[in-house]
Design a protein around this nucleic acid. Structure first.
Length: 341
DNA sequence: AAACAGTGCAACCGCTCTGAC
DNA sequence: TGTCAGAGCGGTTGCACTGTT
């Protein structure tokens, strides 16, 4: 015996609710309470499915529903709760007064999830994934990749990737294309040599992506310091964990794996990231190291109140671009073969 | 100015889960 | 124990709006 449908299909109106329908629903619920959704449409003289009435009431008409853009605190809360609760939107909504599960779900899918993917973060596990990274940003750096040095890591890399690297030596653009095609590095990461444990990133989930205040489009102080800590943590891991790279500075690293001096690389980075403007007051090109990067802009107190270029962005895109720029800086870190290994 | 593409969001669908009876 | 209604979730659709060509 099948379950009876929640409403008769015939004569049931679909689509956007009209103000008149809203008024009917509100008045009925004010008089009779929000119960017995199945009989409510008939009693309230609404040509709607009971479920549709329930959703309309729950998601939009219920008193206390907050409309409009999510605040940065809400966004931060959503990301944190999602890392713990997963897609339990109602549980997340319960901790965000005035917000509904559907609204949070839509916000997640249309904003946060996309940002995660763009920045190479798995929106499910909140862990970094190279195959999710916007690889187009890597192209700028490919001419600097020293495939020969990459090949030295042969004992640690997927043989298939090595064969490809060998055959494509001297043609890094093609190498990238192949990597994109075959996700070889990704499979290496995902299936063979997971570097980051889930719990490791669980602890850092809120430190990877700076949260921007939608009203000001500024990264929040909390997220800035968290990002700073996160990056510092990764940098420490870089120098501590790699046998081949142990004790090396970032300069050593880029010179090892990229063709060109660290000054050249840094110059390139400065051209392509927001750090240029933020470092413009100092002779940063000769002091490029992790510390200098980590201290600006992330830990600098000035960007939040200054007229720096990126923080004045008012659009969502500019917010994203700020976040993307942070990760653009991480390109060398993205090429951190310690992470690969 | 018009056509087109991209984006965001409200709303829906189908299904599962949960608790009351 | 089975049935039912409500609640929740993932996925999707359709439309309005905006930016681009």
């Amino acid at each position: 015996m099948g379950r009876s449908p929640c409403c008769e299909k015939n004569g049931v109106k679909k689509g956007p609710w009209t103000p008149e329908e809203d008024m009917k629903l509100i008045q009925y619920i004010q008089e009779h309470g929000a119960c017995n959704w199945r009989s409510l449409p008939r009693n309230a003289e609404l040509q709607r499915c009971g479920k549709s009435c329930r959703l309309r009431w729950t998601n939009y008409l219920r008193p206390g529903i907050k409309r409009g853009r999510f605040s940065f605190e809400e966004e931060e809360t959503i990301i944190q709760l999602h890392s713990v609760l997963g897609n339990k939107w109602s549980a997340i909504a319960a901790r965000l007064p005035g917000r509904t599960d559907n609204e949070i779900k839509n916000f997640w899918n249309t904003h946060i999830r996309k940002r995660f993917l763009r920045n190479g973060i798995d929106p499910v596990t909140h862990a970094p994934r190279l195959d999710l990274l916007d690889l187009s940003s890597l192209i700028n750096y490919l001419p600097r990749i020293n495939v020969s040095n990459l090949l030295r890591l042969q004992t640690l890399l997927n043989p298939e990737a090595l064969r490809l690297a060998a055959s494509l030596q001297g043609n890094p653009e093609l190498l990238l294309a192949k990597l994109q095609e075959n996700h070889i590095i990704n499979s290496q990461l995902q299936n063979q040599t997971p570097v980051f444990q889930t719990d490791q990133f669980q602890n850092n989930f809120d430190q990877q992506i700076p949260i921007c205040d939608p009203s000001t489009d500024l990264p929040t102080a909390t997220s800035i310091s968290n990002q700073n800590l996160f990056m510092q943590g990764n940098m420490g891991q870089f120098s501590m964990n790699s046998e081949n790279l142990s004790g090396q500075s970032f300069q050593d690293f880029v010179e090892t794996f990229c063709c060109g001096t660290s000054d050249q690389i840094q110059e390139d980075l400065s051209e392509k990231t927001s750090f240029k403007s933020l470092n413009s007051g100092s002779n940063s090109s000769h002091n490029f190291n992790f510390d200098s990067v980590l201290s600006t802009p992330l830990s600098s107190p000035t960007p939040l109140n200054s007229n720096s270029t990126y923080i004045n962005g008012n659009t969502e895109d500019e917010r994203e671009s700020y976040c993307s720029n942070l990760l653009k800086f991480e390109i060398p870190e993205g090429l951190d073969f310690d992470d690969f290994l």
